[in-house]
Design a protein around this nucleic acid. Structure first.
Length: 247
DNA sequence: AAAGCCGCCAACCGCTCCTCG
DNA sequence: GCGAGGAGCGGTTGGCGGCTT
């Protein structure tokens, strides 16, 4: 295949993990804690590279991991978060207690990617030509900015979920918000994060809403500098507010 | 029964980001 | 400021099991 192994050292084992290897890794992390992956190989007596150990721990051995059976609520949340964050699987996973980025990514690619989603939302990978499109480039910058949003810790995520408004049975606001109204309600805390994420952004016209809806869709107009400036300001405010979510 | 196909998912790779000296 | 090494992330691959022909 021509692929270079991630660990060039001789004697580093690859492929499926055995129960014995799992035990060695789990014991090591129990005694020494997470991190220092590069020293795991030496100190735990594993013939695995640090990256492999880290992946195995995060995706399989870590406590409180839920496996399989993605619920309808979780699926709804994944769709909404993907709408908001794009392919930021680790960010999405950070907001869904017990799920790993790898599992969510796999679930998306094998299930949700095939499902028809509302509006003009394009859930799968961005098209190749996107990078050469100025509008797409602007959006890409916006997504980069959004990627700075820090992780929403699990307790917060759970408390959000427990409010019930993230569930599929949540009652949607019938109002056709302008994005400004939406933004002011969210900003003044009259609207919770759950309600914010539950909003039907497709009814909104301006760029901010477009980015939230958009993911990788390419239908957003970009006409003049004022619109761009407004978009930038809202996006910056959004990022700042996101910082507060985890406080 | 067997061969081929397909979907799922664990694991790997390459890249970027972060930290530290 | 810069480079090296480690950590983390997203895209991709490949093995395996189930299904179809």
């Amino acid at each position: 295949m021509g692929r270079r192994p991630c660990c060039s050292k001789e004697g580093v084992k690859r492929g499926p993990w055995t129960a014995q290897e799992d035990k060695l890794l789990a014991d090591y992390i129990r005694d020494h804690g997470e991190g220092k992956w590069s020293s795991v190989q030496k100190q735990a007596g594993l013939k695995r590279c640090g990256k492999s150990c880290r992946l195995r721990w995060l995706n399989y051995l870590r406590p409180n991991i839920k496996r399989g059976n993605i619920t309808q609520d979780e699926e709804d949340l994944i769709i909404r978060l993907h709408k908001l964050l794009g392919n930021r699987w680790s960010l999405i996973a950070g907001r869904i207690p017990g799920r790993t980025d790898n599992e969510i990514k796999n679930y998306w690619n094998t299930n949700l990617c095939k499902k028809p989603l509302p509006n003009n939302f394009v859930p799968c990978r961005p098209s190749e030509e996107a990078s050469s499109d100025p509008q797409q480039e602007q959006q890409s910058k916006a997504e980069d900015k959004l990627s700075n949003v820090p992780k929403y810790n699990n307790q917060n995520a759970e408390s959000e979920s427990s409010e019930g408004s993230l569930s599929s049975s949540a009652t949607r606001e019938e109002e056709d918000y302008s994005s400004h109204d939406l933004w002011m309600n969210f900003y003044t805390r009259e609207m919770s994060l759950s309600q914010f994420l539950d909003t039907d952004f497709s009814n909104m016209s301006n760029l901010f809403a477009g980015v939230i809806v958009g993911g990788y869709s390419s239908t957003k107009p970009m006409h003049d500098d004022d619109v761009e400036a407004d978009f930038g300001a809202q996006l910056a405010a959004f990022t700042d507010l996101a910082d507060e979510w985890i406080m």
